[in-house]
Nucleic acid binder design. Sequence first.
DNA 1: TCGCACCATTTCCAATACGATATCTTTGAT
DNA 2: ATCAAAGATATCGTATTGGAAATGGTGCGA
Lengths: 211, 211
Amino acid sequence: MAGPLRSVGRVALADHVYDALYRNMLVGTIAPGSRLNIDQLARDLHVSPTPLRESLARLEAEEVVVKRPLAGYLATPLLTRTGVSELFDVRMQLEPWLAAQAADAGGEWPDDAEAPAPDDDFPRLAAKDAWFHDTVAALAGNGLARQALRRLNAHFHVYRLFARQGELPRALGGHDAVAAAIRSHDRTAAARAMRRHLAESRKQLVAIADA
Amino acid sequence: MAGPLRSVGRVALADHVYDALYRNMLVGTIAPGSRLNIDQLARDLHVSPTPLRESLARLEAEEVVVKRPLAGYLATPLLTRTGVSELFDVRMQLEPWLAAQAADAGGEWPDDAEAPAPDDDFPRLAAKDAWFHDTVAALAGNGLARQALRRLNAHFHVYRLFARQGELPRALGGHDAVAAAIRSHDRTAAARAMRRHLAESRKQLVAIADA
DNA sequence: TCGCACCATTTCCAATACGATATCTTTGAT
DNA sequence: ATCAAAGATATCGTATTGGAAATGGTGCGA
């Protein structure tokens, strides 16, 4: 017996390859805009081209890489200033609403929330940031919205921009206010706190992203 | 000048396979929830398994198919009532705003807009619906929002639901009002018209989708 | 010196075959 | 009829091949 028990962990090799590529692009081992040589990557990751191509297809669907037909894949270039602007315009439409929904919902803000620490490195900060926003979406109870938000890869783009400047985000303190509002089930306060947090992040990012 | 001119047409076979699968799922040749046998599909489409796996990986990232590791791919099941509800909640956050932005923007509503006709079949209606909403997003000038909207695959899910009932959507008349408001650059009217249109569609769909 | 065309190399893309492993189905026993 | 085991089937990853296109470098000509 033991039931399905299937979704404990991923089993497909392509999923691990996907994670490896994603992480390497996040931390800059694979630079934005650089070409992705399939054969070379296959050697480096010790896999055959097949799961690699599969991973790249998925990454392409998420706009983490771009595909030039018959010319290979590229790591998606850094967001320009207008790109940052567009990204935060979309987030501004979704996330305050999600925060409000989360405050309404019955669920409670998890206790094991680890606040971003000053000595966190980029990957850890990115993970915590992604976790925070994803948790808000999860509490809101709209799976599709959560997916849509996830697919924006906001933390991915944001942290690559920070990494270029060697600068660290200052706006992550805003997480507390949002969490507090959700905990006290205050709809409008949650939306407002999220709006403030996003506006803060946006301000710092447009200053970083030129062009 | 003249630019690369490269993206005139797709060249990768996997892209054609992707389109074929998508279309077959839209019109019901591949039923919702049915299994997708890779070898069989490869024979039917006269391609090798290689581009098929790539296409399926992309479709999986877009949630058009679901992957059960070591057990193959499934055509995504029909949206349940809560799924429809979630979908339209997200659209309600994005599309009225996009319509308002489109009304603000300098661009004009294209003349060659073909209104949905009563004798259109499902694929044609789905195409026109998708075109309409995508055009609004395009005029809004936010490429990321447009992508995010596209990735929701709203018309895909909606038309599969209609197809099951053999029923045709009644709410497509609302397109006119939105287009008119955009043409006259009336922000609030555009948003309101889009909101009405979505509410109308939603009403008809939740009636169709049980569970 | 600069631009352009040409050519060789590299790379992508698809096809094919095979082995290992997990799942699905069917058969058979209780 | 229910359950379990065994065979059949499919997925998954590997390895390799060949063709076609794009890239990068070289040399010629203006």
